Computed example of a mutant assay.
Amino acid sequence: MDKPKPPQLRGVKLQRAVLDATIARLEAVGIDQVRIADVAVAAGVHETSIYRRWRTLARLLADALVSRTAAEVPIPDTGSVRTDLVEFTTALARFVATPTGTALVRGTVLADDDPEVAAMREEYWRQRLAASEQIVRRAQARGEVATTADPRTVVLTLGGLVHMHATHLGREVSPQTIRTAVDMIVDGIAAA
């Protein structure tokens, strides 16, 4: 007697299964060893389903990392710019310390010579920066931060701090360093 075939995944269920399997493979074997065939087996789908939706391994890895980042680094809204920036930067630092976060920050998954992946990476950063900048924009609307403060510079400064610790210093940024950096920034952009 033949074994019954597992139900075919479609739409959101297929996407979730494949992205989760991709992250699991990335964490298990490292980014350089992830293969679409292995992801397909882990997700319980056919390789053709993955190729149809993502077309390339680079696009699949990028999408998986983008999805994971949004889940792991939410944009806080506590009503205090100082608290929001500490929470955001702390979540970012915690994420960067994971194998998935490290892969994203180091950019090892995104090939510069692939225009499609480069466009996807650009769109990802546009969306993430726009979302992160809302922390400062909300504080400006509350009168907490000067209207002349540049939200993107604030976010990039804190992101750069985390990035430098992860990629160049080889260690996590400490909670005290995060608080000190946020204090310096908030004191500098505070409304008069």
Rank of each mutant, 00 (worst) to 15 (best):
T98S: 14
G101T: 07
G101K: 07
T102Q: 14
T102S: 10
T102E: 14
A103D: 07
A103G: 14
L104F: 14
V105M: 15
V105A: 15
R106N: 10
R106A: 14
G107R: 15
T108V: 15
T108L: 09
V109S: 15
V109L: 11
L110T: 12
L110D: 12
L110Y: 09
L110M: 14
D112Y: 14
D114P: 11
P115F: 13
P115C: 11
P115L: 08
P115I: 06
P115T: 12
P115K: 12
E116L: 14
V117A: 09
A118W: 10
M120K: 12
R121N: 10
R121M: 10
Y124L: 11
W125H: 11
R126L: 10
R126V: 05
R126A: 10
Q127W: 04
R128I: 12
L129W: 07
A130V: 10
A130S: 09
A131V: 05
A131I: 07
A131L: 09
A131T: 07
S132Q: 07
S132C: 05
Q134H: 03
Q134P: 00
Q134V: 04
Q134C: 05
I135L: 00
I135P: 01
I135C: 02
R137I: 04
R138M: 02
A139S: 06
A139D: 01
Q140S: 00
Q140H: 02
A141G: 05
R142M: 00
R142S: 02
G143Y: 02
E144Q: 10
E144F: 00
V145A: 08
V145P: 03
V145F: 00
A146Q: 02
T147P: 02
T148C: 01
A149S: 05
A149M: 03
A149L: 01
D150T: 05
D150F: 01
P151K: 06
P151A: 03
R152H: 08
